[in-house]
Design a protein around this nucleic acid. Structure first.
Lengths: 345, 345
DNA sequence: CTGTTAGCGCATTCAA
DNA sequence: TTGAATGCGCTAACAG
């Protein structure tokens, strides 16, 4: 099936020149007589010849490839981020190699091996092991050994004992602004929904949530802090649990937009109107947040900046330059219709 | 920054053996004395050595990589499909290289070049040029030249003059069943929303829609066939146009779930209840279809089968075997709550 | 301006 | 069971 590979030798022979001359017109790195160039280009074109990138990369010790390890491309947050990152990487002259770890540490390890063998020039890492509050020393060790061989950038994560370059969303500030917004709307009974315990994003947000409540002199009610993960289902469950309580909050901050959607679903199902009876706030500003009725008030992730910065930092590292150890990407509120002034009892 | 590469020569030297012996323990393709093996393995491990995949691939003329050209990973349909395909490819021993063309033909061309240079073993192609009803001869030519060098599989598309292997969703049947469902629910005024003209998916679905109406002895009303693309916005627009009509349908089939969501939004906004006042049907069964209120009745794409089949066909081709030229992946109805019996006037 | 030579890292002959 | 030699396809250094 696969046609015999054409090489520069074949082209050289047909053009009656040496392989190096062909190579020269290919790279454009040296002057070749115009007529010769023209003849060679014609033959290249006629034979549909493409230089073998493997051979080239083997020589250069560079593949111009960036590896991405992410948990799940099927999640809006990651797919958007990857899309932006890929586009920017392309501008910087790099192609992207994507690996879906499905949040499975073993798959992460496998993919890291694969990326290393494929000789990618650098790796951008998201999710999984770098999101655990308690770093697993085995995986930390693996990561350190990896980093001895190749530049790595973490997005929204860290590992204790691993001194990596990291680019982070300012989750704390986002939550802070969300709480400020609700408080300004007169709410004093506020819950927090969703998020897996032990995952840094959850803990960061919960911590900021509590701090912000304190700052607003609003008491923290632990029984309004519910949820098991980051899915719509989790939002539904948490909301259902809330509905069983005698004393219910009038507003809930959700760990992300999916959880907010689930919460909205469940509240609506049980006759509560959002935002009239209860305000629901999200996080991430995924594509659907705008459309999901009633339109979710949320915090935008600044996907462009997040992706671009991560790629930029990695490229600096690849080129052997200095790069900031930690970059915080600002977040900002996106006001829509799932939050409303508290209208009293 | 980047550490000097360790090679089998370094390992060989430290182990006081020849490079070929190291190579042998690496591949396991030849017998090596157990003690020697052990010693070499220890040294490999201690030095964190990984064989260079580029060199290996150069030699084998195989990269065990599949290239995916898709329009936009940020769309649920594609991300789900890619996820399933990648998982299956991994089982078959292949890693996946993803390229987002953004439905831009020029980017498609660039990525095809890149994939060729990176020596992927085969390519799975979705969207863009293979979805145009009117094939652009320039791109068809490019595709043909590509296919002379490397196996290609199309998913849900084709190009006139290009004799490619293709795996297709049975869109026609899905639409047919949708119409049947609505007709059985007593609806006789049915519209079709969304879809870009000239794109095969749109035309296939519209054609099937009309045939199905005929079959049900329901008249086709062209003024109820509206929409400009595949987005939520398009659904909103189309629904708004429908609302301006004196005579309105009581059910609409949408080109996909996003359009259905937009339509539901707009109908709701103008006081129509879904499904009580109007039934709205989607297509694709994306993750959110289940949750988007009131829960969208739709057609599932059978993502697993679609992705697995495409990968299987491609692998057969890569291995030089025969493979079916066209495979149709069945679709089936997913009943939820956006469709209801017509309750008369 | 062009040809010859060498080597990137690996696996596979062929000998020993 | 092991070592030496060769070549995958390419480019850069060095001559000419």
């Amino acid at each position: 099936m696969k046609k015999e590979n054409i090489t520069i030798y074949d082209i050289a022979k047909k053009a009656k020149v040496s392989p190096s001359t062909v190579s020269r017109v290919l790279t454009g790195n040296a002057r070749v007589r115009p007529e010769t160039t023209k003849k060679i280009k014609e033959i290249i074109d006629k034979n549909n010849f493409k230089p073998n990138g493997l051979a080239r990369s083997l020589l250069y010790k560079k593949t111009k490839m960036i590896g991405f390890v992410i948990p799940d491309i099927n999640h809006s947050f990651f797919s958007t981020l990857v899309l932006k990152s890929e586009a920017h990487a392309l501008k910087m002259g790099y192609t992207s190699f994507l690996c879906n770890s499905m949040n499975n540490s073993e798959m992460e390890s496998n993919y890291l091996q694969t990326l290393l063998e494929k000789q990618v020039d650098g790796i951008i890492f998201l999710g999984g092991r770098i999101n655990e509050i308690e770093t697993d020393p085995v995986y930390a060790e693996e990561m350190k050994r990896l980093m001895e061989r190749i530049p790595v950038v973490f997005i929204n994560g860290k590992m204790t004992g691993v001194d990596a370059h990291v680019v982070r969303t300012d989750e704390a500030y986002g939550i802070w602004k969300l709480v400020e917004l609700i408080a300004n709307h007169g709410h004093t009974k506020i819950g927090f929904l969703g998020g897996l315990k032990g995952i840094s994003s959850t803990e960061n947000k919960k911590n900021s949530f509590k701090l912000a409540l304190n700052h607003q002199s609003i008491p923290v009610s632990e029984e309004w802090i519910l949820g098991s993960d980051f899915s719509i289902e989790s939002g539904e469950e948490a909301a259902a649990q809330l509905l069983n309580l005698k004393d219910k909050p009038t507003a809930v901050v959700c760990v992300n937009d999916f959880v907010a959607m689930g919460a909205i679903n469940m509240f609506t199902k049980f006759g509560l109107r959002v935002p009239d009876d209860i305000s629901v706030l999200g996080f991430d500003d995924i594509y659907l947040a705008k459309y999901y009725p009633p339109g979710i008030t949320t915090v935008t992730q600044n996907y462009d900046m997040l992706g671009q910065t991560a790629v930029n930092v990695l490229v600096e590292l690849i080129e052997g330059k200095e790069a900031p150890k930690e970059t915080i990407i600002p977040t900002s509120l996106v006001l829509r219709n799932s939050c409303k002034v508290y209208r009293g009892k």
